[in-house]
Design a protein around this nucleic acid. Structure first.
Lengths: 208, 208
DNA sequence: ACTACAATAGACCAGTCGGTCTGTTTTATT
DNA sequence: AATAAAACAGACCGACTGGTCTATTGTAGT
């Protein structure tokens, strides 16, 4: 398993999907750049959609691990939360950065029941969980809602960064996150409210 | 100009692009649902890409006008800013809401030089301008940076709303916006340094 | 009624798409 | 060396894509 060819395929597909989108990137293109035969793609992944799912899962794991690793040295969970935005800043500053793949995936696969859409939602859930864990460890009130706010901030930064491609959106998001956390510390912000992201994401879009 | 058929085409294309995406929606599909011949599309718009641009421009104008109209009754520009998020909330609550079209456009057209990408960027610029005008009228310090923060908040809410499809993301974004404005009022936020009285008076434009 | 234009249906095009099938070669295991 | 599995190149498929062309019909304008 995880044959060498399979990994190369995954890496190559990820790069192409990131820079050129899912629909516009044809299978033949991926195969050519990976130097791999068509049948090894279909033997290993089954279909283009499943390849996309594999790429999304792989990328999600990567990114979450990277965020954890980048903030592991920080002991204060409060500061760890802010450190995540600093890590985002370094991503945006990378000239190879070309926008958040998961946002692209939900846009390109509008059907919420499609597998790629589910994979993208799973990533957002993981990110929210990461925030929530840190909020809890920081003993902040109302961790679920706070976490969904922080995730929303990160999403907004991702959106903006796709357009401006500097670290500025992450820096601004960090400033706002500081405000939010500060207020949460001193006044129990946000007020008691059902958490937004965590519950609604697990199932499909409501009202369908 | 603006022939009746042309309008119907535009409206129909907008609906389909919104719900099913740009690439996945074929031209024949649009024509069939609009009850229009293929040649009238190409005579009026030239190509699918230009139709997409027309749809984006039309939708942008619509939305900006709607935001202005919804907040026109409010006299305090400070409250107008918050009113924008309230209007977003009503959009998200509409069961027909299926995510921000402009975010989808930048995701589906990764080439920043493509016309649809430019059209989407133009919308973000208009939204930021709207915020900036309100910030200026509210005599808030550092209006440009503040406006970009508010636009980022709105983007994040849009992202999240595409996934959860309730008004909650807009409400959370509004809460955060309140924090940001509050701080801007009392301490000249945002700024690169801790508030110093002499400095906030000079009020230099921050590095960009 | 004549003209000019808009819009029609639908055949048609070349190209691309994701995916299958075949037969051969490479690689690894024992 | 023998064998089984994996990867190979590439022909091939039907479906669909955006776009063009033609010939016909409907709709004003003077």
């Amino acid at each position: 398993m995880a044959s060498l060819k399979s990994k190369k395929l995954l890496a190559c597909a990820r790069r192409l999907f990131e820079t050129e989108g899912f629909h516009t990137t044809g299978i033949d293109r991926i195969l050519e750049e990976a130097g791999v035969a068509k049948m090894t793609l279909y033997n290993n992944f089954g279909s283009k959609d499943q390849l996309i799912v594999a790429v999304l899962d792989d990328a999600s794991q990567d990114m979450i691990n990277q965020l954890k690793a980048a903030t592991a040295a920080i002991q204060d969970p409060y500061e760890q939360i802010l450190g995540i935005f600093d890590e985002l800043a370094t991503w945006y500053a990378d000239p190879r950065f070309s926008g958040c793949m998961f946002q692209a995936a939900v846009a390109e696969f509008p059907d919420p029941d499609s597998d790629p859409a589910k994979a993208a939602r799973a990533h957002l859930l993981r990110l929210t969980d990461l925030f929530q864990g840190l909020c809890t460890r920081a003993e902040l009130p109302n961790a679920p809602t706070l976490a969904s706010m922080l995730a929303m901030l990160a999403s907004g930064a991702n959106c903006t960064a796709r357009q401006v491609r500097t670290r500025a959106p992450a820096d601004q998001a960090r400033q706002i996150a500081e405000l939010v956390l500060e207020r949460a510390c001193s006044q129990g912000f946000p007020g008691k409210r059902p958490p937004v992201i965590a519950e609604s994401l697990t199932n499909g879009v409501p009202g369908e």
